[in-house]
Design a protein around this nucleic acid. Structure first.
Lengths: 235, 235
DNA sequence: CCAGTTTTGCTACTTAAGTAGCATTCTAAA
DNA sequence: TTTAGAATGCTACTTAAGTAGCAAAACTGG
């Protein structure tokens, strides 16, 4: 990346805000940007070639990207993580953890930095302190995965759906909108089921007065009832 | 720990073998042992007090410990990880990741080192390089959790059971024994179901000639058939 | 504005998983 | 050696989840 460009400032300021790079010196961060190339991933960009993320490490600057697994046996998708600003991927290939069979799709127009894995490893060798922040970051993600396992293994689908809606409620707006822009297929992939089942339970919730729906948009009309769906079944 | 003791040598040699501490200098490892106390956890020892692991970091020297979650709604256990030699816990509390609602149980007579979290953090500050090996370690565990999610969310129980048996087959012995010493309740906790369902599928497998059972012991009699249960459904 | 695609809503059906309960067998502690 | 508890095997039943398929509605790109 030509760090003389105006754009460079934007990336620099995003990274320095990130918990991953906040402690990195000005010089080192510049070095990181020098081995980076910026790329735009328009909405719906898919990375289905696992070798790409195997050799290129990414920092998500803006946008939203889902990490998902595809099961060919029953033609089902499972979203493992939603990546947002300042997330990085793929930490598995960075640590040489064999092949990591996941795919990526930009759910919104996104901007990413591309860094060759080999160069990233070198940079980390020169900046050993980042291992600490990467460790903290990874542990946080692991915590999310752990709760995901517990949800999928022990809770029924209405509970999982309710929790998904609850956790993604936009409490700032007057009307509690949730998970904007995702279809029922996407919702199913997020909780490990199919669109038909998601739709069934959404209709049930609607009848119970918990929410209202319009296309790709869910509005929670009764937060208390939604909470009750989750509570009494562990928080 | 009084590092003059004969026992000390045993702990030292175990740690230096571990990928987590192998690069640590002799002096630093001694310092680590000085802030450690050794403890025996006989088989069936349970740690149900989450505040214990919140303030004490552990290194498992020998034995086997399961990390599990308990769901009070439906009275079910879910085993998240099996810890073995040179595993450490709990990395969540070490990284200050809030409370981590999991319990521990020694499945075999185990020997652990106890290290106060605050002292461990200090020691890590003095030995910043360990962050790198802890990162690699954590990423490995995260990989296991990720596959766990995929299994539980997308595969049926016969497949999950078959995979569990397959992954735990003792290929060294002439007779392929698998998961020795665990009851059907434990097997259920490992794949996210109940003992009744585990038993049902074990009986099916038995009829299909895949395995033979005796109390707390399963012997695989036809590995190929077992593999077929898993394959064709992603590896 | 039209044509084609995506998304949603819904019905009917199949199947797997979960639940309850009990009898038998095995094991370990008194 | 006895006995209480644990583990297993099994039956019958209930319920939730998955599947298939179709039609209406709502977008989107040309």
């Amino acid at each position: 990346m030509n760090i003389g460009l105006e754009k460079y400032r934007h990336y620099y300021e995003t990274l320095i805000e990130s918990e991953l790079f906040s402690h990195v010196t000005h010089n080192s961060l510049n070095q990181l940007l020098e081995i980076s190339t910026a790329q735009k991933w328009p909405k719906k960009t898919c990375i289905l070639d696992t070798s790409h993320t195997q050799y290129t490490f990414h920092v998500l600057i803006t946008g939203k990207i889902k990490v998902y697994h595809f099961d060919s046996t029953n033609d089902r998708l499972l979203t493992l993580l939603l990546l947002q600003d300042n997330d990085v991927f793929d930490i598995f290939s960075l640590m040489g953890c064999g092949t990591h069979k996941v795919y990526y799709e930009a759910l919104e127009n996104s901007e990413v930095l591309n860094i060759p894995v080999a160069k990233m490893k070198e940079w980390m060798k020169d900046n050993p302190l980042v291992h600490k922040s990467f460790l903290a970051y990874t542990v946080q993600k692991m915590n999310i995965l752990e709760r995901y396992i517990i949800n999928v293994a022990l809770e029924d689908i209405p509970t999982r759906l309710a929790r998904l809606l609850y956790n993604n409620m936009d409490k700032s707006s007057a009307h509690y909108q949730s998970i904007s822009g995702l279809s029922h297929v996407e919702l199913g992939a997020l909780i490990g089921t199919t669109r038909a089942v998601v739709n069934r339970h959404i209709q049930n919730f609607k009848e119970e007065g918990i929410l209202e729906v319009s296309r790709k948009q869910i509005t929670i009309t009764n937060v208390k009832l939604l909470e009750e769906k989750i509570l009494g079944k562990n928080v």
